[in-house]
Amino acid sequence: MSKLKHLFSSFTLKDLLHGLRVTGKHLWRRKVTIQFPEEQTPQSPRFRGLHALRRYPNGEERCIGCKLCEAVCPAAAITIDAGPRQSDGTRRTTRYEIDMFKCIYCGFCEESCPVDSIVETRVMDYHFEKRGDNILTKAQLLAIGDKYEEQIAEDRKQDAKYR
């Protein structure tokens, strides 16, 4: 009997028609595509994108060259040289470089930083044009920080009570 049933359902193409109905219904469903440059998906304030080095409001760079980020970085993407600054003798970095090809965007550097200097911004659509551009230098990182400081500060404020 069950064999007969199977024969009947396969000759009436029952399962195939059922499948066609599913896709036929989806033809009219709402489309979920996000048209990227014009539309964007919402981002969390904790979004981990391009890195930046921040400054204090008086313009002094935050980084004190403690090298915690370099130590914690699981991909060994951060390279730091540190020493006393010529003008006032405070401990500063002389070199702060992130290899963006090595970076895995885990955010450990940001978490480890005692002075909230290295952060990850919401910027996620960037590119490199020349070989070697993937290594962001201290000047570049500071420039990124200056550019997005408002957004960075706002995001840190929102997240402050959970840290």
């Binding site: 989806h26 469903r29 489309k31 595509t33």
Partner: peptide, 10 residues
Amino acid sequence: KIIGYMQMRL
């Protein structure tokens, strides 16, 4: 287009 629509793409 049609396959895209059936997969809820554009």
